[in-house]
Design a protein around this nucleic acid. Sequence first.
DNA 1: GCTTCATGTCATCATCCGAAGACATCATGT
DNA 2: ACATGATGTCTTCGGATGATGACATGAAGC
Lengths: 183, 183
Amino acid sequence: MSTPRRRDSARSRELLLAAATELFTERGFDRSTIREIGERAGVDPALIARYFGGKAQLYLATLQVDQLAANPPDLLEPERAKALLDHAAQRGPGPIHRAAVSPHEDPEVQAAAAEQLHRRLVDPLCERFTREGLDRPQLRAELTVAAFIGVSLSRSSGTFQALAQARTEDVVALALELLAPRR
Amino acid sequence: MSTPRRRDSARSRELLLAAATELFTERGFDRSTIREIGERAGVDPALIARYFGGKAQLYLATLQVDQLAANPPDLLEPERAKALLDHAAQRGPGPIHRAAVSPHEDPEVQAAAAEQLHRRLVDPLCERFTREGLDRPQLRAELTVAAFIGVSLSRSSGTFQALAQARTEDVVALALELLAPRR
DNA sequence: GCTTCATGTCATCATCCGAAGACATCATGT
DNA sequence: ACATGATGTCTTCGGATGATGACATGAAGC
């Protein structure tokens, strides 16, 4: 068995990354402090500067690891939509979702978030719409993703009671009924 | 003609309120500072404390004045939806919209925002759905408003190019095509 | 004119934050 | 064992922010 080393930079790095993902997910970038991140990770926050360069770079790192990473989800597939909403409901909306509605101050950071958002959500939808021969596929895709993100974020915000309390299956069913293009 | 008094608390109050509405709309509550508000209003920021009690209370005051105040908009009426999206595109999403996706830290403030959101957007839709005999009218209404807000906020964030650049009429038409309940 | 209160200006405080660096401690190679 | 670099801990700095109160100034009543 591998002896648990008392000092392990890789492990510290990952602990910080995981804690940062949690906090950025729960409260967003601005309201998360590197002290909180360090506390949750059980790692001194000064190491954030050493291993990532700073809070902004740590945020960029979390974007790369965000759980959407799996095969590109197609929002119009009920199982995928449900999985995404479930994930958001249980662990909060991902940093990428937040970036869609409240842009980051640093343009570089915002651009990175936008790139992830497109690659993982918009582009797959756009391809689907193109395949289906719908007009304005890009606009349709962005509109759909924006609406989906609005629902996902609103569900976590506590502002909409019925939306937050409804079972995910019901939300997905209703949303797809509304969002699915007319045949 | 009324002599413009060099000292006029009512005027100072309104200048602060107007400037605060602008800034909260542009950058949200957290990223707006009372110094910026005072600067834009041409009024000393210390007067915020005197006339409103503090930054949070000033925010509450802006919620009451938010431009949605006019007759309850029905999102499914194209003219109303276009007006709301146009307004958001030109002057930024209102503070109420932001509150739906990123809850305020202070529960009291958040509750006030939620109340406005329901009174002005959710409730009218819910009544409409009820009249039309649709099931789950409350859930439908919240879902629709959440989606609409996602679109509105995303349009202003610069994350979605096609969505931001498309003419408002086209966005509304496409959104209504997607959102309108099946007949 | 003088008083008195409303209104406005300014300086300062306490707090929080991200960043940086000094210093301590452990691991590893020789 | 020792030297050296990696890793971790702690303190401190500079800046920003909201709040507060002391003080100044104008307005209104007498």
